[in-house]
Design a protein around this nucleic acid. Structure first.
Lengths: 347, 347
DNA sequence: TAGGTCATGAGGCACGTACCTCATTTTTGG
DNA sequence: CCAAAAATGAGGTACGTGCCTCATGACCTA
């Protein structure tokens, strides 16, 4: 029922004995140092597998002269969500430091693939073990990721994935599921049906496309009474979003719902308030930020879908720890759940 | 922008030097060993505070002969949620073991305060550093918690809190917020208003009372078109819940919504299906389990509020680590968010 | 003041790994 | 087959803390 016989930890000494080699050789294999014949290395690997040896990360970090260095590259001032991400990194830094993980935050120019690529290319393996980036899907960035990987830097993607690159892990939500959830909520909010508008930041962003596809799949399939308007583009920015929404409200006096799957929510709320139709239109937006919180509290926004930046950073650091020290081990990360917030469960 | 000068870690050596005492004395103070005059201990404490020393938990665990031992006491077979909790504990055990935390799971008889109290009283500080319990609010249990605390065992509460006891930390959701959220969703699902029934497991359980109060506060205050029926008691059990719901549906042919804030959801779904009114009544339930998943998939249940047992266990272990080794330090835990699940964002 | 108790200091070994040096063995190429 | 090169072994120190022993010094009490 409860007590397992606590058997002794498997150490490098055991591996050395089992493989019939010395500690020094095991050490060379484990840390990828040169001077080991392939046949010998294989004996060691076999012993590691047979014994189920797994290096003690804490002892390992303690023995190293330097802490594990993890660099976060967060887009700068593009929107409040990125600021939340950067704050979350800062908040975890102290705690990580106690566990011998040294966190660096770099802000890079948003929507500037060249800037991120340059930053990655400037990273030396001597000064960084793991890089965490929020990429857009550009060949320039894929190339930089692959180059960094070849230099021995573990690269992970955050929020938005970069398939086809050498990135070792992705941490973020399932954006199609987010879109489906929005549709499903709006469908239930509007049992009589009605016109529902979708606003995206840009139809060139992977996250946004996935959200839109998830939304329209469910809205079209399960809620035939809903009538889709859009998608319109608000460019993730308050002013542009406000004018788009204002025009939208003017053109459709019977608009029943809005799903803004991008940013620019301050503009969304402003347009709703100015039209006098806030609280008459059911509204779903993304990411808990100052404008969306205000919208929830005033009732202009009904639901906010959130991707929990704190949790993302926590998992990113945990994954970095595993990846950077236990290379080639499968990484298991707690999935990031889509947070659904109403005024009533605001944190 | 990025690079802080990585200053050296503050160690016990620094503390000893700063306090003008020897390493041995610092060690005695840190580990509560006897043989230190109050005045000397104070010098050490002062130096610790001045230098901002914080013991290296990993080095500490490595130096100890034994791992940190954390015992979870989970109610047995009362409902599927508790099984999920126990599973989550098991799933974390391997990972925790790599960090020198030894997890034990004990199942205790559900709804049997005496059994949990006995188990706690049988715990020796020599074999357990931290106990995590899911308590009901009984004097017997409060006494056992206090006794364990006096014996030097850190006690934490999970899912349901035990204020007024010596428990060092509580990990769980805000149940009043959960109730408010349910009301707010149902209110939006039923813009025309209608009869809404509330079913609890028992009105003697703290969680359930808090959920009901949150629900009725919002339902009565913000959605005056809703008409509350109940609360009824389903005793957290499928058969009793089924008969309660069947009677409810028979008596109210115009019932528009149901909020089951307790367990027994298999009975809830069965009653809905048998009545032929599944999918006509808006239904909100608690905890993602086999019956609620089935209900979401069939459409019998619209929304499930979930308290994320995996996250709870993760935070419990993290808190145990902090509490058991860095006594008297404020514990910071990531808040457990209320998960809101529709068919469309099921994990 | 002698004998005792208590407080403190000094130092060592252990935990599991990293990383270094220096011997010694094995392999390889000509 | 010999010399050079490569592979391997042996063993040390370090990381920061826990825990142990032993010696020394201070203080108290009869």
């Amino acid at each position: 029922m409860s007590e397992e016989n606590a058997r002794r930890r498997v150490t490098v000494h055991d591996v050395a004995r089992a493989a019939g080699v010395s500690l020094a050789t095991v050490d060379r294999v484990l840390n990828g140092r040169p001077g080991v014949r392939a046949a010998t290395a294989e004996k060691v690997d076999e012993a590691i597998a047979r014994l189920g040896f797994s290096r003690d990360l804490n002892a390992s970090l303690m023995a190293r002269a330097r802490d594990l260095r993890v660099s976060f590259f967060i887009p700068d001032s593009s929107n409040e969500f990125m600021d939340r991400l950067a704050e979350a990194v800062g908040a975890r830094a102290a705690q990580a430091s106690a566990d011998r993980i040294h966190i660096l935050t770099h802000r890079v120019r948003a929507l500037d693939a060249g800037d991120l690529a340059r930053a990655l290319n400037g990273l030396a393996a001597q000064s960084c073990d793991c890089a965490v980036i929020v990429p857009s899907e550009e060949p320039e960035i894929i190339a930089a990721v692959d180059a960094a990987t070849r230099r021995g830097i573990v690269v992970m993607t955050l929020v938005s994935d970069l398939p086809g690159s050498g990135r070792r892990h992705f941490i973020g939500i399932d954006n199609a599921a987010a879109g489906r959830t929005a549709a499903s909520l709006l469908g239930r909010f509007l049992p009589q049906g009605g016109k529902v508008a979708v606003i995206a930041g840009s139809l060139h962003l992977r996250d946004h496309i996935e959200r839109f596809e998830g939304f329209s799949g469910i809205a079209g399939g399960e809620f035939p009474l809903l009538c889709l308007v859009g998608p319109l583009e608000g460019h993730d920015e308050a002013e542009a979003t406000e004018s788009v929404v204002s025009a939208l409200l003017a053109r459709h006096p019977d608009l029943a719902g809005i799903y803004n799957l991008g940013a620019g929510n301050a503009g969304l709320v402003a347009a709703l308030e100015k039209s006098g139709r806030a609280r008459q239109v059911r509204v779903i937006a993304h990411e808990l930020t100052a404008p969306t919180r205000a919208g929830l509290n005033s009732g202009a926004i009904d639901v906010v879908l959130d991707q929990n930046p704190d949790g993302e950073i926590r998992e990113a650091i945990a994954a970095a720890r595993t990846l950077a020290l236990a290379t080639a081990r499968p990484v298991v990360t707690d999935p990031i759940e889509i947070g659904i917030f109403l005024r009533d469960n605001l944190r």
